[in-house]
């Protein structure tokens, strides 16, 4: 029971980091960046290549992966999303799906569909064993600890960043009213670029953590966690940073419990059913605020 709870929180923390990326982009650019999950996959491959093929030390490999993803995020935004700033959300969403497929298939051509065995990059602290000596020992792996700490740190850092810094305030202004923000002298395009850069950088961290915990890396690695993390962001209330965290962890726990007590095959179905229920009962999510529609 406790076992499942811990692995659920661990998985949930990864979802939370991905969901933070979704929520920031959604809050500011008002678009569902469908390709976010695939940026995670690219981050995983970048770290893998740097660590395994080039033999770089782990911190450098992670940094490299973050750099690649940040650049990728900015490039995607400039090339694919920026021309559609004034288009319907339907057009933007279809483009985002196109980008997602593009990344997956490029990865498929470069790295083939053979899964790569990802080395654990985050086991640098010792794991904790609970109930030592008794029959029911529970080991909290080092990956789990690092993942949870990383997600909390990221959430706190993001909260401070959006609350205290000038760019962070600009982000909130853009998310509230793009036109008014522009009139106040905020560079809307630059702000959106920064948001994408941060979101994609986080995706790289999420990629490394995800692949360290589940060490098979494939071109489709990112798509399912990406969709589930979006579910988490919706569950917590899209646009809300603590909401993304809460939603991510709840979803991770739900998934692990469903796997344990219902069926491994049906766990995805349970997770998605939860999304439908949440949207039916509270469409704004747990911590989201209701936005009045302006005519």
């Amino acid at each position: 029971m406790l076992n499942y709870l811990i692995s659920g929180i661990s998985l949930g923390s990864v979802y939370a980091i991905i969901a933070l990326g979704y929520t920031m982009v959604y809050g500011i650019a008002k678009m569902l960046n469908f390709a976010h999950g695939d940026v995670i996959m690219v981050g995983g491959y970048a770290a893998f290549c740097a660590g395994t093929y080039l033999g770089w030390p782990v911190p450098l490999a992670i940094l490299f992966s973050m750099m690649i993803c940040t650049i990728l995020g900015i490039v995607i935004e400039k090339l694919a999303y920026k021309p559609l700033r004034s288009a319907t959300s339907l057009a933007v969403l279809i483009t985002a799906i196109g980008v997602s497929y593009f990344l997956q298939n490029i990865a498929l051509l470069i790295w083939t569909s053979n899964p790569k065995a990802f080395p654990n990059m985050v086991n640098f602290i010792p794991s904790i064993v609970l109930n030592k000596g008794t029959g029911s020992e529970i080991t909290i792996s080092s990956t789990t600890i690092v993942t949870i700490i990383a997600s909390i740190l990221i959430m706190v850092a993001l909260t401070l960043f959006t609350g205290k810094t000038k760019i962070g305030k600009a982000m909130r202004a853009v998310s509230e009213d793009k036109g008014a923000a522009q009139l106040m002298g905020i560079n809307v395009n630059a702000t959106i670029s920064v948001t994408f850069a941060i979101g994609s950088g986080l995706a790289a961290i999420a990629g490394v953590l995800l692949c360290s915990a589940y060490p098979t890396l494939m071109p489709t690695t990112g798509s399912m966690p990406g969709i589930k993390a979006f579910t988490a962001a919706v569950l917590g209330g899209i646009g809300s940073i603590p909401g993304a965290m809460l939603g991510g962890i709840l979803l991770g726990i739900l998934e692990k419990f469903a796997q344990a007590y219902i069926s491994t095959q049906l766990s995805d179905a349970v997770v998605f059913a939860a999304l439908i229920v949440v949207l039916l009962v509270k469409p704004t999510g747990l911590l989201g605020k209701k936005v009045m529609e302006k005519v």
Binding site: Y26, M31, L32, S89, L90, L93, I227, F230, T231, V234, Q265, L266, D268, A269, F272, A273, L275, I276, L279, L280, P283
Partner: peptide, 23 residues
């Protein structure tokens, strides 16, 4: 549930539905 929502939410819920059916 879905048609009370708009835009992106509808897309993601239909996606979820497809996955549920498959599972």
């Amino acid at each position: 549930p879905v048609l009370r929502l708009r835009g992106d939410y509808l897309a993601i819920v239909t996606l979820a539905f497809g996955e549920i059916i498959k599972n």
